[in-house]
Design a protein around this nucleic acid. Structure first.
Lengths: 223, 223
DNA sequence: TAGATTGTTAATCGATTAACAATC
DNA sequence: TAGATTGTTAATCGATTAACAATC
């Protein structure tokens, strides 16, 4: 039989981590990599706070959402902390990705070190242009979009990355809804919601940050 | 001589708009375009809230940071509201942009309708590869990076977009710090801060949203 | 042990939502 | 006028910061 303490501990294990904290995790990931690259093995919340330009309090609060990764009087072991952050973010889950749309954007992403850094393996690309089919970008071969469903199955793809023209977003999403993929990284600019199909979607609006820049500039000009 | 009421009003005109609101503005911009495209001329905060999946209260609060754009009993005139949002975001300021790095990413962006939609004019590109110099992408001619400073001056560039390899980010930033540009849209992944030089910077970390997607997927897998 | 720094609680701050009077 | 919907104030909620006891 459980006593009250057990129940409290159990609840704490399952408590939802706030979106604000989750959105900061990739930033910790980036800075920890940098600290490792610098050869540091130990870091305190005070040091990290100075580097990242946030409060030490916030860092300790954030990290404690997932467990006590530090040690009083010492700080945080950089490698251990990095390992933990990686675990939380699914780096090392060996996620397999496929890119739909082998245009400039898709090609740029696949050629970049972005995926490798995050432990994501790009196993295939898809396009409709006959001139592209059969070619390779980095390690990923380009297949005809006609073969989408069977190839996603064949390669056991977890994540689909959408870099095609926005007008094909919805029909592609409908096809993807029926597949076994776990998530979509959607760069088309057309918002998708496939939560009903158990597929996580991240809708990226890269232009939004260009607009906030324009806002800042316009504001500075006014002053 | 000013009485107290004047002072209050004046302060209200200048009160800082919260970052949370500013980050939502581009989203209003996108949805209003969509509503215009649909041919609607009038929209209430209730309708808009349903479309955007936020509360009507938030919409009214957000818009009121910038002035009373609506009318009681009627709602908002879509075209007027869109015009106002555009004004706030500097669309129509006729900002002139140049892209440094004519690789796949830079090319993808310049070919996309992103800039035109936001009233930003891409007037030039820069690269170090001799094979690219002199070519054109959309309306933008590619110049040698050696000519950076004089060309930015010549074209009266407001915004520089960085799509070059991260290892050249810092040296490029140092050169840009001495120019007359107003802002940098930085897609290199290396954070910049040129506030001391009066240059607004928007550092984009596109990979961060891929990581939050991986977090969600890893979370779903655990459940 | 003494010093340092975490983990955690409590206080503050800011952002969101609810409610309603103003008004078109 | 009556109905609708804003603009705005007040209440709630969540996130950040400060403080300090726990502990390495």
């Amino acid at each position: 039989m459980k006593d009250e303490k057990d129940i409290i501990i159990e609840n704490e294990m399952h408590h939802e981590v706030s979106p604000a904290v989750i959105k900061r995790l990739p930033r910790y990931f980036r800075y920890l990599r940098e600290i490792i690259r610098m050869g540091k093995t130990r870091v305190s919340s005070a040091e990290l706070s100075k580097m990242m330009n946030v409060t030490a309090s916030q860092i300790r609060q954030d990290l404690n959402c997932f467990g006590g990764f530090g040690q009083q009087g010492y700080g945080y072991n950089v490698n251990y902390l990095y390992t933990k952050i990686c675990e939380i973010l699914g780096v090392g889950c060996g996620f397999r990705a496929a890119v739909i749309g082998a245009g400039n954007l898709g090609t740029a992403l696949v050629k970049s070190p972005m995926f490798e850094k995050r432990g994501v393996d790009v196993v295939a690309m898809f396009d409709v242009a006959p001139s592209l089919i059969g070619k390779k970008v980095a390690n990923a071969k380009i297949y005809s979009a006609d073969e989408l469903e069977e190839r996603l199955e064949e390669f056991a793809v977890d994540i689909v990355i959408l870099t095609l023209d926005k007008e094909y977003t919805l029909e592609t999403a409908q096809r993807l809804a029926k597949t076994n993929i776990s998530g979509i990284w959607n760069l088309t600019g057309i918002d998708l919601d496939l939560s009903e199909h158990g597929i996580a979607v991240e809708n990226v609006h890269i232009g939004d940050s260009l607009m906030t820049l324009c806002y800042e500039i316009a504001l500075n000009d006014k002053k």
